[in-house]
Write a protein that binds this DNA or RNA. Sequence first.
DNA 1: CCCATTAAGTCAAATTACTTGACTTAAAAC
DNA 2: GTTTTAAGTCAAGTAATTTGACTTAATGGG
Lengths: 399, 399
Amino acid sequence: MTDPRMIRAKSGTNHEGTSAHNRRVMIDALRVNGALSRADLARATRLTKQTVSNIIEELERDGLVVPQATVRKGRGQPSTPYALVPTGAFAIGLQIDRYVTRAVAVDLMGTQLARAEADLPAGGPANGIMVVLELIAGVRGELAKVAAESEKRLVGLGVAMPGPFDVEGADNDQWMMEAWQKFPLLETLAARTGLNVGLQNDAAACATAERMVGAAHGLDNVVCLYLGYGIGAGLILNSELYSGASGNAGEIGMALLSAGDPKRTALEHRASLASLYLHLGIDPAAQGVHDEIGRLAAEDNPRLREWVSEAAGNLRWAVHLVETIFDPQTVIVCGGAPEALARRLLAAMEPLLPSIADRPGRSLPRLTLGMTDPWSVALGAAAEPIGRAFDPRFCAIMK
Amino acid sequence: MTDPRMIRAKSGTNHEGTSAHNRRVMIDALRVNGALSRADLARATRLTKQTVSNIIEELERDGLVVPQATVRKGRGQPSTPYALVPTGAFAIGLQIDRYVTRAVAVDLMGTQLARAEADLPAGGPANGIMVVLELIAGVRGELAKVAAESEKRLVGLGVAMPGPFDVEGADNDQWMMEAWQKFPLLETLAARTGLNVGLQNDAAACATAERMVGAAHGLDNVVCLYLGYGIGAGLILNSELYSGASGNAGEIGMALLSAGDPKRTALEHRASLASLYLHLGIDPAAQGVHDEIGRLAAEDNPRLREWVSEAAGNLRWAVHLVETIFDPQTVIVCGGAPEALARRLLAAMEPLLPSIADRPGRSLPRLTLGMTDPWSVALGAAAEPIGRAFDPRFCAIMK
DNA sequence: CCCATTAAGTCAAATTACTTGACTTAAAAC
DNA sequence: GTTTTAAGTCAAGTAATTTGACTTAATGGG
């Protein structure tokens, strides 16, 4: 007898799947384009006016869209644009980093409505899980105060933490995170919060954030270079976050800088905040580190300038590499570096190396500065459940 | 008035879309798993028995599946497995390379039923297009002789040629191909053959071939390193070929070997058949070059050994890089190198560099030898229209 | 040897959700 | 003031899945 678990197949779909897909397509269209009339939506989605009307009616009943003032535009009956209601859905994002954890609550549009951070005690999840749970509960409570229906409309909890996940012989400075990764975090959080829980690495979270509210909004193929304690790439390919066979795609920081180098130097040893801290002799666990390096960057500190120069050289190569491999619409630099530092890095990276991205008729710059905000990872973590709930490509068609 | 062309949205779907998706899911399941009963299909696709029955009936009427002998397996009524009919669909693949062009005709299962090759005259498409058209016509005629209904069941013509496409300042040795790329090839072929025409680069074609009949069969996340005149990566991500924003994803051969190198040496200058020909002082346009280097590899020629050693070092790094960036299930080495040479390269690449691919519980090797056959690119080109027609992920849900 | 059990597969009706085509409404153009 | 154009609604039609009862055909226990 054929073991049914051995049969590999994709899922079929039915009318509900069709309907869910169409709803998501419409929500996505409204998110990307802003308010649209039913007629516009019908043209854009290639559905009939009637179908669009039905779905809009349902979305309005569900409190996800509202009609705007009618618009006269030439001949014909004026149209009534519909806009997404920001308070139509909420999500909570949680970042677990090496020394700190952050939680934010966002609405459907990605606006932050509440947030809080806490230091993570040493010793991994055994000591930290309570801190995390309290942080989430606090933000959730704040959200409930600001938005009446938030509990009913919470679509999930997104978690972001540094990768890689489930790898043998990970880097030494990862030992803190390793304990977290062995811990049944998702199960615990799901059980204790009652929410759907999803996980991404920090670079992926940043890309998710950029896609929802940042430089990648409305783009389909983007690579986000996330400069944090390490360096990772968040990959948006065909409008979808790509996470690889085991969730570790984009760990570009572990890429060796050259084929021949016997010392096997990885990119993040030369271009990451960790390498900057090392270069400057700063303790990354100390309070106010972020502001400190922001100040150094603003005043163009010579030691920092040295690092920028070398890091920029390596990042220039990293950009060349991802352009060559992914052929994205643009590359976005984002992450936990202070904006002054990020701007210096971007400036130092020019001119970029030649690559296939030098093509005629580009409309976007090859390199874009994205969010430089310590909260962007938590924001992206929060964006993940919203994307999951409302993104038409998220396997929406399957049952 | 809002310009409808300015509105960006994904396409909605309807019952036909649903149905098409379910048909494709079933065909895909049969392709990956072999013959399955309706009950098995219902379980695997999460559709009802009745729906599966309806679709199977339709597929049988269309000549795409046939019932096999019934199978008794324990209690209950014996099941009737259904198998794909190889002659249910046909496609033609065309490879346009620098000095030669090849065409193959394949069936639904990827079996080659006819093939032919021809030298390409210098001067690009002006002189070459007639050669190509005659080649296609020849193969098409052969196919018609072997398979009665082939004309009715031809799903398309796939074209593969070296990339990158539409890039400024492409490599010098690409000038021959540049003329081809400027030529309205797809339009001409579509007009002259009356078939649906699709285009891939050669690495992508090889990956498509590996997925249909090779080492990537049934896998969802695979990188194929295609060693040809240059070197490229064919990317299968989430079961789908990824081709980037402008069709040039995977042009890894143009990746610079190190961040610092002022000479800006690209990978394919060190690890590609072009570099081997250069190293050996062989004219790549000469007849019998392929057999020649195969012979040299078989007899372990010292000059060739030198090249293998250096190329393997660089390929080892390339594997490390794609593992780090894509986190694939496996990396497949394939392409136009003779098998003896490919085996030497693979052997020389061990041990691989450490990477996130070193994870516990892997079932597949990190590195696999794929097809080493000059025809594999043409085969992959032919597989593309079949995939397009029968792959459930190929935007099947959209209208 | 018979009958209960199990599983494959069919039948016919119900349901869901999209489409169709005619119609209404409201504004601009002539 | 009439015509034209476009947005949007109404009601019936249609395609495709689901549902639940039924049929068929095998195994296995008593």
